[in-house]
Amino acid sequence: MLTRRAEPPLDPSILEEAADWLMRLSEHDLTDTERAEWECWKVSSPERSRAWSRAQLLQSKFGGLPPALAMSTLDRPSNPERRAALGKLALLLAAVPTGWGTWKLAQSQQWSADYHTAVGQRRELTLADGSRITLNTDSAIDVLFNTRQRLINLRAGEILVQTAPDSSAQPRPFLVSTREGRMQALGTRFTVRELEPRTQLAVLEGAVQVELADGRQTAPIIVNAGQRTDFSAQAFGQLNPTDSNVGAWTRGMLMADKMRLADFVSELARYRRGFVRCDPAIADLRISGAFPISDTQRSLNMLVQTYPVLVTGHLSGYWVTLSAA
């Protein structure tokens, strides 16, 4: 059976051109001159034709522009809001055909959750029982406390949990659930990160009992302080020592200790709107240092000053590429 070869990625500048035409078409009727210019642009190169095909697919999925981008204030080219929306739209075009599903999932996970954070935001909560939850970037949780349990459902992202003793007449278990399983705190402090189809758990104090979502044939395990693991709905990963920097994000830092540049970029991108790409030629470059996640541009500048890395921005900073200097 023949397999279809994956298409090469489109140039960010061409995606921005397609996004601009899509936005102009949604904002007002084109003049005859503008329409002729648009028709000429579409067929001027194979890459532009491919970019416009993605724009049409996106239009058909949304029935127009995504609602969050279809704003009447966007009709002035120099408007900063328009430039920001243009960058977001170009990123959606880069992700088509998966972009629509990702957009819908992110919106439903974030805005229907009890508590959530935006990209780059962190949030601390004190729950009714005195337990504390810190949400990392782009995270969402539901909180369900009743007479039988204290349950945190992690829909997306990452949390740090510091449990408090239950003062109820009948002490209730403190539970954290993900798609892959359920964790019961045994007087503890720990982090949980949802990376569907796996969950990452790191225990800083106390212990956590873990039960798999589909673990009828697998007994629960206990992860003790100083240990970490990951698990799917069917199987546990290995127990390993906890990384001493696992909670550095709560202090606004990303700690790297001889970390692969590709892995560093993947982590930093969590705190930055847009797309950050690392050239495979420098993916294995090892870097170390403390980098601020509240100012990702400063972190990128620190890389340039310390390592042989060149940072190139497109789409008003929404698309960043790291390459060899």
Rank of each mutant, 00 (worst) to 15 (best):
T31A: 14
V119Y: 06
K42V: 15
P292K: 00
A6V: 15
L105N: 13
Y318K: 08
H314C: 14
E17L: 09
C278L: 07
G247L: 14
A156T: 08
E211A: 09
A219L: 10
F190Y: 12
N146Y: 07
L2K: 11
A202F: 02
A68W: 00
F291M: 04
E124C: 05
L151F: 02
S244L: 14
D75W: 03
A18S: 09
M183L: 12
A128E: 15
N79H: 06
L69W: 00
A325T: 12
M1S: 15
T33H: 09
N146D: 15
L65Y: 00
R179M: 13
L160H: 03
Q209S: 08
A6T: 15
I14Y: 08
D295A: 11
I221Y: 01
R150P: 06
S49R: 05
T33E: 15
L303E: 05
A207Q: 00
L74C: 10
L93Y: 06
G215V: 06
G130I: 03
A36P: 01
T242A: 13
A248F: 06
D75P: 00
A185W: 03
L57T: 10
P308R: 02
R273V: 13
T31C: 13
Q110A: 13
E180G: 03
F291G: 04
A113P: 04
V192S: 06
L268Y: 06
I141M: 05
L105W: 09
S60Y: 04
L195D: 14
L154R: 01
L89T: 01
W21V: 11
A113K: 06
D230K: 00
Y115I: 12
T163S: 11
Y271F: 11
M1D: 15
T163E: 10
R286D: 12
Q149T: 06
L30C: 05
A95E: 15
V203R: 01
M1H: 14
V192G: 02
T73D: 15
L195P: 00
R179S: 11
C40N: 12
D114W: 07
R273F: 12
V276S: 09
D114L: 10
A290Q: 08
D214T: 00
T73L: 13
S44G: 05
I14F: 10
V43W: 03
A262H: 01
T199V: 01
F291K: 01
R172P: 02
A235R: 03
M253R: 10
A283F: 04
L92M: 13
